[in-house]
Structure formats: C-alpha cells, structure tokens
Amino acid sequence: MEKEIHFERAEFDQRVSAVKKEMSKRGIDVILLSEPANGNYLTGYDAYSFYVPQMVMVALDHEEPIWIGRGMDRISALMTTYLADANIRSFPDAYVHSALSPYAYVAEVVKEIVGESARIGIEMAGYYYSARAHADLVEALPEATFIDADLLVNWIRLIKSPAEITLMRQAGQIADAMMQRAIDFIEPGVRECDIAAEVYHQMMKGTPDFGGTYSCAPPHLCVGERALAPHAHFTDKPLAASTIVNLELFGNRLRYQVNLARTIVVGKPSPQYQKLADVVVEGVNAGLGAVRPGVTSEQVHAAFANTLAKHGFEKDSRLGYSIGLGYPPAVGEKTVSLRKGDKTVLQAGMCFHMMSGLWLKNDGITITQSFAVTEDGHEPLSQLARKLFIK
C-alpha cells in the first residue's frame, strides 16, 4: 500500500514531543484531540471522515499517538499516517448514528492505555467535540479527571516548520490563480454562481506544478448591497453594469490554506471609493512594514489603525488572525489575533491573514494579504497586486 505522508517522520516526532512536554507541564496523562487539524498535525491523517466521532489520542507513556475512528476509515489511517497498525483503532459501524456511543469505545482505549483514573485533556471548545460527546466520556470514565486542554496543540502549531512554509507558499500560488481567474471572468451580465464555478474549478486544478483541494469555507462572493456584509453567499443573479464585487477565497494545498480577498469594481468607481481603496492599501503596507520578530500583534495592528485614522477611518473588527493547517468550518488557528490588546510576540514561522476588509455604513471593501513572519520581516504568501481591480 502506497503511503501518502507529506512530512518526514522526524518532524512528526518533534510535534508529538512538543505536545507531550506541554501535557506534562499541565499534569495531563492523556489528551483526546477531536479537531481534525490537530489530528492531522500529529499523525498525517487526512480523510473527510470527521462528521462522525473521531479522535487522536496522545499519552505521555505511549510512544506514538493512537488514531480512533470509524471502521471504514481505517484504510485511510493506514494510507495517510505513519502509525503502527496497533495504534489504529476503529469502532464497528453499529456505533454510527445509533443509540451506541462511539465515546464508550474511546473510553475503552483510554482504560487500556492509561487506566481508569487518568487525568484526561479534552478540547472543550472544539468544533467537533459536542456536549453529548463530553457527557458520554464522563459517564464511561467516572474515575477520570477531565481537564480543559483546548488550543494546547493549536499554540504549538503556531510556528510553522520550513516544510510547512513551503506548503503555505504553494497554497498562496493556488489562491493567486483562483483570484486571477475570477478577475478575468468578471464582467457585466455574468452570473454570480458562474464566477463561483470558475473559482472552484481553479481551486481544485491548482497550478501546473501541483493541485489543490477543498477549502475550509466556501468563497465569500459579496456583490452590490451584499458587499456591506463580510460573509454573504453568492446567488444566481447576473452582475449589473456598475457594481462592487468583494471576493474572499482560499487556496488550499494538502490542508494548508492561504486566504486572499480583493475588491473588483464593475464599471467606474467613484472618486471617494477609489480613495477608500488607496487608504486600505496604505494601511496594509504600513501594517506589513511593522512585521518582524519581537514586535507584538497589537503593534502591527496599531501601524494599520494609525494609518486609517489619519484619513478618518476606523476598523471595528480585528485586523487578522493566524492561519495554517485547517479543515472546515474555518482555517483560523484560534490563537493569535492582530488586534489591540493582543500582546503575543511575533516569531519567525508564524503565518497570518491580514484581513484588512472594511465594512462601513455605505461601503464595503476587501484588499487583504496573507504573510509569514521571517527572521527580518515578512514574506507575502500571495503575490497578486494589492489594489482595486476595475473591469
């Protein structure tokens, strides 16, 4: 069987070691990871199987993680992870969408590996860890102590390895190709759904050198009045002869994702709107100019905010957030934000989407930049011009 593993075993070992070190600090014997991105990060596992209960277990005294999931997905675990067969555990299909709880099965694996009275870390705010999941685990492990270990792995993921940065660069190239295809296709009379179709086609096609895959969210194609909303959905309406198109999309390479947003004006923009675009680009450039190891997230935000303030504008929402490996429903790592009050010190290897979009009372505009922090500044992860595109 051909293995589909995208990192050296030594890199996986380093990741697991870092997680165990943090577990030891917190007095955690075993951690149960429900977030697909965290499971992928530690094992390489990749399949669209997270709609049913699925976990990766890391125990301090067990060398490898243990993957626990649905029986029919065991083959994907064999194909995409480095794990020994004994560390791939699967429950029968009778546990799927039935009165039986897969978490009772998970509990039996926990008992086998660390006993019934272990200190167990769980991701309390995980997208894929429900109230029912927690209740079932607590019932099945009454002697255990449960500890909220939410984001423990996410914070370790924050600093990317050189191999991860390579995948982020490739994701950025896919994002550029997607956006350029949309810009080329947009014209009066084109249906919004047809723009989305072009974007999806390029998302999967990728570049001549490497293909893409599905993103963590659908493209946000916000047209006309819906340009005032950041996350509106596209329709099947044709574009008017004069309108605004705000498009945020996502290039994804082997689950590593780069976000990219641009505004395309169909027709001629008003002088005021062109000025708004120029101010946003000036702010983004100022924010990027502040990026380097040793500065804080809020200092990057301040450079952007101060530039906007000179022109009488203010952005209510955060300026950006850390990105990297992800699965639906979102790529954000839920750790660092570029905003006032976030004093996280930037380090080389961190990656962010500078989401500089403005949604004002009468106008919306999105000209953004994803970047990696380098040893002496930043590296843009997409290369498309930061400007207002006019069709």
Score class of each variant (00 low, 15 high):
residue 89 R to D: 01
residue 51 Y to C: 04
residue 116 E to S: 14
residue 108 E to W: 02
residue 113 I to N: 08
residue 67 W to C: 06
residue 60 L to T: 09
residue 95 Y to K: 05
residue 62 H to D: 10
residue 89 R to W: 08
residue 65 P to R: 04
residue 71 G to I: 11
residue 115 G to T: 00
residue 100 L to V: 02
residue 95 Y to W: 05
residue 63 E to H: 13
residue 56 V to W: 00
residue 53 P to W: 00
residue 103 Y to S: 09
residue 62 H to P: 07
residue 94 A to E: 10
residue 52 V to E: 14
residue 51 Y to V: 10
residue 70 R to I: 00
residue 59 A to D: 09
residue 47 A to H: 14
residue 115 G to P: 06
residue 50 F to I: 03
residue 109 V to D: 04
residue 64 E to K: 08
residue 106 V to Y: 09
residue 49 S to M: 09
residue 89 R to P: 04
residue 95 Y to M: 03
residue 94 A to F: 02
residue 64 E to Q: 13
residue 102 P to S: 08
residue 68 I to N: 01
residue 56 V to F: 06
residue 56 V to I: 11
residue 77 A to M: 10
residue 91 F to T: 06
residue 66 I to R: 01
residue 83 L to H: 05
residue 48 Y to K: 11
residue 61 D to Q: 12
residue 97 H to C: 09
residue 58 V to L: 05
residue 59 A to S: 14
residue 101 S to V: 03
residue 64 E to N: 09
residue 80 T to S: 10
residue 116 E to K: 13
residue 60 L to K: 12
residue 82 Y to G: 01
residue 99 A to Y: 13
residue 107 A to M: 05
residue 90 S to N: 11
residue 51 Y to H: 12
residue 51 Y to N: 11
residue 88 I to W: 07
residue 105 Y to K: 02
residue 66 I to M: 03
residue 54 Q to D: 13
residue 75 I to R: 12
residue 79 M to N: 10
